[in-house]
Design a protein around this nucleic acid. Structure first.
Lengths: 189, 189
DNA sequence: TCGGGAACTTGTCAATGTCTAGATACCGGC
DNA sequence: GCCGGTATCTAGACATTGACAAGTTCCCGA
């Protein structure tokens, strides 16, 4: 404090990622700029480059983190004995609460989708999702349908395409939508 | 040919839009550049600006065109007496065949979503989609669920998130997924 | 025919991503 | 305790981009 900022930031990588999340959340993924992030974090214009090779590298790191967070969220509800609807609600909640991560995760033109860290995390999340609907109906189809509903709902919600009443809770609506898929299965609707 | 290109292009607006579609289809919406498009079309770097104010203006025009095309596609299957599954299949087919338009349409940070032309076209498409599931189950929920499945499936397909066998026809799979939603309703199909 | 305006060009500016080289701080081994 | 190697960060430069301003060429209607 006494003599301005220290030469070493301390945790630049995390700080830049956090700043990127802020920017994307507020103004979309097309608004992120390496130099802008550097400025926000209080570091020289080329500082971030050392941690993430590229602009794409930065977003790759974000995507990987996102898939990890999603997997964690899914596995938490699964361990809690949740059924598909709970899983779907968790998916929607994740998408809304981490909309920046979510946006980048499914925008392969912005990051390196073949990055090993991203691929591994994506597969972990995918397996958890798949497992949630195994055994209900034809295996593949039900899983794809289930993923599609929650993903579609989350995407439409985040982009503002759904006309919604102010005060609507996305997780509640999402749960209803997910429930609609398997509405006459198991006990009473 | 005798004296190079003519001063007036003739149909610059359409040519630029077409070039933009090519670029986005091949390398994603983040790869479009006003100057690059001008180069591809064989026009000076500021040529396109005269037709679309902005980069965002260009993408706004694309989005509007996309919603028009979608509405046309939906209304065609509706006039043909199609039910929800047909409508859903048309939605998926549109998303896959016009992936560039589709991508821009649902990326409000890239265009001006409040543009009157876009808003009007979007509402026309929305009404057609809504009408396709009216009367089945609770009105609002079924419509949202239906839109969510097909939109989610189309998005996942286009981003390459779905592990699919080569040779799979997205429209066929999409139809199956859409059918899964209302699988035990009404007679026939 | 002639003048106004649309369509396009050329020149310019600030800003961005990426590369290079150099400065500074940390850390393990002696 | 200090010393050299390395990770971290800065500073400068360059090509490229979106946007703006002013000029040029062409069309079209009064």
């Amino acid at each position: 404090m006494t003599s301005g900022r220290p030469y070493h930031h301390g945790d630049l990588r995390r700080a830049v990622l956090a700043a990127a999340v802020d920017v994307i959340t507020e103004r979309g993924a097309s608004a992120v700029g390496l130099r802008d992030l550097a400025r926000r974090v209080g570091v020289s214009h080329a500082g971030p480059v050392h941690h993430f090779r590229d602009k794409a590298g930065l977003l790759t790191a974000l995507a990987a983190e996102g898939f990890e967070l999603l997997a964690d969220a899914l596995s938490a509800t699964r361990d809690g004995g949740g059924d598909f609807v709970d899983l779907g609600a968790a998916y929607v909640r994740f998408a809304v609460e981490h909309r920046a991560h979510f946006e980048v995760m499914f925008r392969p033109d912005l990051h390196h989708p073949d990055d090993p860290a991203v691929a591994a995390a994506r597969e972990r999340a995918g397996a958890l999702l798949q497992g949630g609907v195994a055994g209900e109906g034809e295996p593949g189809l039900a899983a794809v349908a289930a993923w599609s509903v929650v993903h579609g709902f989350a995407t439409l919600w985040n982009t503002g395409a759904l006309t919604r009443d102010p005060g609507d809770d996305p997780e509640v609506v999402g749960r209803a939508v997910a429930g609609f898929l398997f509405r006459d299965q198991g006990r009473g609707r």
